[in-house]
Design a protein around this nucleic acid. Structure first.
Lengths: 112, 112
DNA sequence: GAGGAATATGCGAATCTTCGCATATAATAA
DNA sequence: TTATTATATGCGAAGATTCGCATATTCCTC
């Protein structure tokens, strides 16, 4: 694969690589929201949130719709939901394995 | 979702957010490889590659197996393959849409 | 044990990211 | 028009990432 393609993928991953932006995307899974909605739900500075939204916009992960005073954000591609979902599964699996490992260590510890 | 969980996910995405590391993971989809294999296939400085591998190790995305002189790397969890695969699909879809948009613009341009 | 191959680590410079704060823009209401 | 609400942008400081280069470490062979 040419490096330019890897570069593109890396940019997408990079855009997802922040807790706040993950939170934003997870909220968007259920439909469009305005910036004030995010501020309300996430309890962040408006300006800070706006910067994170700018990152997601730059990579075209979200799209916007202006309605009078407000701007509605939504996911550009439903595939992004699948991606987040897969990451959720990955996360749970890793945590599960870590817990199992700890259990095992503890059992071995007790029996020694 | 608590912020600590989002933080964990962000760290995984962050680990994937570099062309070289994406290249490494894509090579690993077909089985384990040594560092020299990577150097050979990717044409990078050994030290640089090693640093990228350290990032993937730190997040436990890859695991290592020492065999004499060499270190074999492999993916810890096959779910990572699915994740990369989904990103591949996402990528192709985005590119497809962009091309379609350009086509459309050109068509509109010609007819004006 | 000396030398060589394979891999990892330490360090400093350049670059990128994130944040807070101030300010800009745009639409609406008064 | 002025004020107000909703959102975006500019800027500088602090921190993180990446790279190249030098150097460790580890294992193997002689």
């Amino acid at each position: 694969m040419p490096d330019s393609l890897r570069h593109f993928k890396a940019e997408i991953f990079q855009a997802l690589a922040h807790p706040t932006r993950i939170a934003v995307l997870e909220q968007l899974q259920h439909g469009e929201l305005t910036v004030s909605n995010f501020v309300e739900h996430l309890g962040l500075e408006q300006a800070n949130l706006s910067q994170h939204l700018a990152v997601l916009r730059a990579r075209q992960i979200v799209v916007t719709r202006k309605a009078g005073n407000q701007v509605f954000y939504s996911l550009r591609d439903p595939l992004m939901i699948d991606l987040l979902d897969l990451m959720r599964r990955y996360f749970h699996k890793q945590v599960g394995e870590s817990v199992a490992l700890l259990d095992e260590m503890e059992r071995a510890d007790r029996s020694s």
